Amino acid sequence: MTAPAPSHRFGVYIGRFQPPHTAHLRVMVEALENVGTLVVVIGSAHAPRTLKNPWTAGERQEVIGAMLREAGVDPARVRFAAVPDHPYDEDRWLAAVRAGVAAHTGEDGDVALIGHLKDDSSYYLRSFPDWPFLPTAVVSPLSATDVRRAYFAGELESVAGMVPPAVHAWLEAFRGTPEFAELEADAAWLRAAQAEAGTWPPLRVEALAAVRDPAGRVLLTRRDERPGRGLLALPGSEVLPSETLAAAARRAAAGALGVTPDDPALTLSPTPATVYDAPGRSPRGRVIAHVFGFEWTGATGAKEWTSPRDALAHPEAYFEDTHALLEQALSPAGPR
């Protein structure tokens, strides 16, 4: 008996796959019954390793390929596109997805979007009106968040029931890497912070400083605490009860520069601060950030001054959403 012809030449399945689990595999296998070639769009590419994004796009492509081969899927029918997050620029993210898909489909417009409208996190399925929507019949309570939580808590038996065998074998091997050790330590920090807080997430307000020198370079700091130890960040501080947001940002900038907050070479930009309050922007709790611009005309010394081009070249080197904040702070139009 001849298999029915696919309803579309290409299908697009968008996800973060951190990590891919059994329901993801079922959706992909089902999609390939309806499309000729499946383009798997791997989100959160070029992001730093965090408990939310532990694995690189390349690693996720590798493990997705392994689970599909294990399931008997012809690798020639699957393509991959890695797309970075643009959390404060939706149009740019949509354009990146389209560009990633077009790299495989070319001028062919016979493209369908595969997915399941389960909650607010599936909003993007309505953002490509020219791609017919193919709802999946796979409905599962599985969540990659639950997989990650169990994995970094050492509950490998639970993980084995959530992911295909090829994924479980890959995750077991990853446990032997230095990257896992860092993430495991961050997970222990998070569990301790949650226990200490009593209620979670705590509300935190922080002030960040985007400091520029006369050459246009930006001042960065490197975190020496968890989570995100070793990653780059903007100078910042939680706001003390006795100070304004601007004063907290000035204090953080001065500390990074090694001067006092009243140093006349440090001046506050007249542009109002930009507020970033996405509820899930930080694993440290409900953290609301206010980014202030400053100019520094004093000696630059041996601080971590970076040109805008270099600062934006390596998103994976930054803490949380710092790279996205820098994209806006360093844009010609200024923060939005």
Rank of each mutant, 00 (worst) to 15 (best):
F10V: 00
R226C: 13
M162S: 03
L257V: 00
R26E: 15
H86L: 11
P4M: 05
L268F: 10
W170K: 01
V218F: 06
D310T: 11
P201M: 07
E179P: 07
L220R: 03
V275C: 09
E90Q: 09
D213V: 02
P214N: 09
S237Q: 07
A254G: 03
L38C: 07
A265S: 11
T136A: 07
E62L: 10
A329F: 15
R126I: 14
F319W: 14
P132R: 12
F180D: 10
R175H: 15
A23F: 06
L68E: 01
R175D: 13
P84N: 07
A195E: 13
T274H: 06
L203T: 08
G15Q: 06
A31F: 03
E155N: 13
L220M: 10
A254C: 04
P227K: 04
A317Y: 11
V239P: 00
A169F: 05
Y124K: 00
G255C: 04
T37R: 13
A253Q: 02
T50G: 13
F133C: 11
W296F: 12
A45C: 14
A246M: 03
Q194F: 03
L325Q: 12
R217M: 11
S237E: 09
G106P: 03
S237R: 06
L266N: 07
S237K: 05
G255W: 00
L220Y: 01
T297N: 09
P164A: 15
A76T: 14
